[in-house]
Computed example of a mutant assay.
Amino acid sequence: MADQMHNPKLDEHPGSNTEKAPDNWVSGDDPMTGAQASYLATLCEEAGEALPPGDLSKADASKQIDTLKSKLKLD
């Protein structure tokens, strides 16, 4: 019988690849999602900031979300 592939989801402490920097995302250059746009709009309103451009990539939207969450102390 062949050895089964290791399933990292069953590890007690998942490996370091569970979180990737947005710049390393395979789909990071894709347009931001509707959920990201909505959340960014909410965070911008709460922070009193102007809305970002509508053509952000997923990675750039994620970075902006992180920045606004930090500014609003939502981390």
Rank of each mutant, 00 (worst) to 15 (best):
A2Y: 14
D3A: 04
D3K: 12
M5S: 06
M5K: 09
M5L: 14
M5F: 11
H6E: 09
N7S: 03
K9W: 08
L10G: 04
E12F: 04
E12R: 12
H13A: 05
S16A: 12
S16R: 10
S16F: 09
N17F: 15
N17R: 09
T18F: 09
T18A: 14
E19M: 06
E19V: 13
K20V: 12
A21K: 06
A21F: 02
W25V: 09
V26D: 11
V26R: 13
S27Y: 10
S27W: 12
G28V: 14
G28C: 09
G28F: 14
D29H: 15
D29R: 15
D30H: 08
D30N: 08
M32Y: 02
Q36T: 02
Q36K: 00
A37V: 02
A37Q: 06
S38P: 00
S38Y: 13
Y39G: 01
Y39V: 04
Y39H: 07
L40W: 06
L40I: 10
L40K: 05
A41R: 12
T42W: 09
T42F: 13
T42P: 02
T42G: 09
L43M: 04
L43H: 07
C44G: 13
E45N: 06
E45T: 04
E46R: 13
E46P: 00
A47H: 06
A47S: 03
G48N: 02
G48M: 08
A50H: 07
L51Q: 15
P53D: 13
G54T: 04
G54I: 07
D55G: 02
L56V: 00
L56H: 02
L56Q: 01
K58V: 05
A59E: 06
D60S: 04
D60I: 01
A61C: 00
S62E: 13
K63F: 11
K63N: 11
I65R: 00
I65L: 02
D66F: 03
D66Q: 13
L68T: 08
L68C: 07
K69T: 05
K69F: 01
K71L: 06
K71R: 03
L72R: 00
L74M: 12
D75S: 14
D75F: 09
